[in-house]
């Protein structure tokens, strides 16, 4: 279980994964400058890693300062949510740029060239580093096997299913390594399933493989859409918490009304893709609606997706507002 601090002990405030890597002027864009200098051969890899470490600490502190209960390392070292995880697997090469879902952000497409194998921990060192430097509990966040497979080119398996299950096998080893290192809560992001809802049975098979031998609390976050057509079936997936997008997937409120929500709920209610600031009273209202389906103590409030689509200062201001809304909700609702 996550140990939750903060004024409101019932609702957990958290994020979905990524955090903007560089601030705006007058603050210096240290990571961008360091990568540029590394690319020009002006600093060593060790010096670049030192900047990555320092920026990660900054981001851990920003989340803690905003008052979040459960934070991430912001994926500061990740060039994108596919490349960082797959390039250390045997059998994968990294290809050209492709648009990431319907965002204006691009990722490098992994190419699965040969049967996949997990060779070494990918995020373990990052997790250790974050825990060591964070004043708040840290959760590791991994892109799930279904989404990784969907966003890769499969040149090694006869079917999507084969590819998804092989990635589930690889990520299972990663999850177990994280668990062994002390992670008591592990999150997987699977936005791609909302674009291919017919594949829910495949996601279920993959998730069972993914979580074999994982006793930590687990979460699955689904965003950039709603769960119409796969609700309540998503509740059969073997995760303790299901996180949903209530911004793009605003219809999720209606769906939850139709069938009891039997797990912990990730309530993604802050718009992670637009700068317009939420009002604290609207956050309270949304939490009130959610308590019709799930008790306060089973809710993790978060932005609708990773925060990297926003300028850094806006992301932080939104987190501050979110925590304020949750605090007020706690006063009103408990």
């Amino acid at each position: 279980m996550v140990h939750v601090r903060g004024q409101n002990a019932s609702v957990v405030t958290t994020v979905v994964g990524s955090y903007p890597k560089i601030p705006n002027r007058p603050r210096p864009a240290r990571l961008r400058n360091a990568i540029n200098r590394f690319d020009r051969g002006e600093i060593t890899e060790a010096e670049l890693h030192r900047v990555e470490d320092e920026v990660t600490i900054e981001v851990l502190e920003e989340q803690a300062d905003a008052g979040l209960d459960l934070i991430t390392d912001g994926q500061i070292r990740w060039e994108d949510e596919q490349t960082y995880l797959t390039r250390k697997l045997a059998g994968v090469s990294i290809d050209g740029l492709t648009r990431w879902f319907d965002t204006n952000m691009y990722y490098r497409q992994p190419v699965i060239e040969a049967p996949l194998a997990w060779r070494e921990p990918i995020t373990l060192q990052d997790y250790h580093f974050a825990v060591e430097h964070s004043s708040r509990p840290v959760k590791p966040v991994l892109t799930g096997p279904y989404t990784l497979a969907r966003l890769s080119q499969n040149g090694a398996y006869d079917s999507l299913e084969g590819c998804v299950l092989a990635l589930a096998e690889a990520l299972n080893q990663e999850a177990r390594a994280l668990q062994q290192a002390g992670a008591s809560f592990i999150q997987f992001n699977e936005p791609a399933i909302l674009r291919h809802k017919e594949d829910l049975p495949l996601l279920r098979a993959a998730s069972e493989r993914l979580l074999q031998g994982v006793d930590a609390e687990t979460a699955l976050y689904l965003y950039f859409g709603d769960v119409a057509g796969i609700y309540p079936q998503v509740l059969e997936l073997p995760f303790d918490l299901i996180g949903l997008d209530f911004v793009i997937g605003a219809t999720n409120y209606e769906l939850l009304r139709q069938s009891p929500f039997t797990k912990k709920l990730g309530l993604g209610l802050i718009d992670a893709r637009n700068t317009k600031m939420e009002r604290a009273e609207d956050i309270v209202d949304k939490i009130r609606i959610a308590t019709e389906f799930v008790p306060l103590g089973c809710i993790h409030v978060s932005p609708s997706a990773g925060l990297e689509f926003l300028p850094r200062e806006v992301a932080q201001a939104k987190l501050v507002r979110m925590v304020e809304g949750v605090r007020r909700a706690g006063e009103v609702l408990s």
């Binding site: 560089i22 864009a29 690319d39 060039e79 952000m105 691009y106 926003l310």
Partner: peptide, 10 residues
């Protein structure tokens, strides 16, 4: 404000 487009491009 600055938003990342890909890699180290904002």
């Amino acid at each position: 404000g600055l938003v990342r487009s890909y890699g180290n491009r904002y």
